[in-house]
Design a protein around this nucleic acid. Sequence first.
DNA 1: TGTAAGGTCTGTAGGGACTACAGGATCAAG
DNA 2: CTTGATCCTGTAGTCCCTACAGACCTTACA
Lengths: 138, 138
Amino acid sequence: MPFTVARDHVKRGELARRSGCNLETIRYYEGIKLMPEPARTESGHRLYSIVDQRRLRFILRSRELGFSIDEIRSLLSMVDSGAYTCGEIHALTQEHLKSVTKKISDLKKLQRTLKTISNDCGAGDEPDCPIVETLIAD
Amino acid sequence: MPFTVARDHVKRGELARRSGCNLETIRYYEGIKLMPEPARTESGHRLYSIVDQRRLRFILRSRELGFSIDEIRSLLSMVDSGAYTCGEIHALTQEHLKSVTKKISDLKKLQRTLKTISNDCGAGDEPDCPIVETLIAD
DNA sequence: TGTAAGGTCTGTAGGGACTACAGGATCAAG
DNA sequence: CTTGATCCTGTAGTCCCTACAGACCTTACA
């Protein structure tokens, strides 16, 4: 099989399909150096190895957990170098958890406020709405 | 008092100070037509009337309640035209409340996941971290 | 009256995290 | 051999601001 591409190498479209990642996002991650420059076919098409595929999965899972790109960069560089400890990873996770918790409490406050002003409103046909009064007030 | 600017007209900087809004944001809101083009001094400096000041307050309060720019545009156009009912405003608020509630529940799910994987981790000096295992897994 | 500091003007770039498109090359199937 | 899908590159757009540069205007004080 001359010039046959190894079975475990896939092109961008296939990687997108397998990972559920948007096609363009893969190239974007390469641009910001989150993903490495992959191998290429002779004609220039990208070829992703199993390792590349694992790395993208790592990134996508981290994003699902709400880590920012910079946080993922940290996670990856720790894991890449192999020089990480449980403690470091745990710290990063706790930091992130704290910001998630903060966001939740902010949104809950918002929710309470919205419920309150919403309850004041009869939702009828009258043109004087207490919600508007709240927004308009001096 | 020839050419004296009315006391209730203020320039951009003063409006920013009074409202707590960022100076540039005011111009931005003008650009996206959330704020009207204000009067100008002869030399071209913006002059905001009381009405303008109220409108900006309305916008800022709506933003504090998490309404998007488009939602604020809707609120404003209803209030501007005077042709709104309690019911319409209430509906918009409920819609927004729903999206806030959704965000909270999404974040809570995230929080639970992060707590779980974080708890599995001893946070010690070991190089094998269960959090990383989670991210790395096939 | 001169001048220096500070406010305002315009247009434009940057951020974060993508997403989408145009215009061309390449590939796979019939 | 042709068609249609996929791939390439570069670039622009999204959302909601924020910040800067370089010029002009205003105000306070000497």
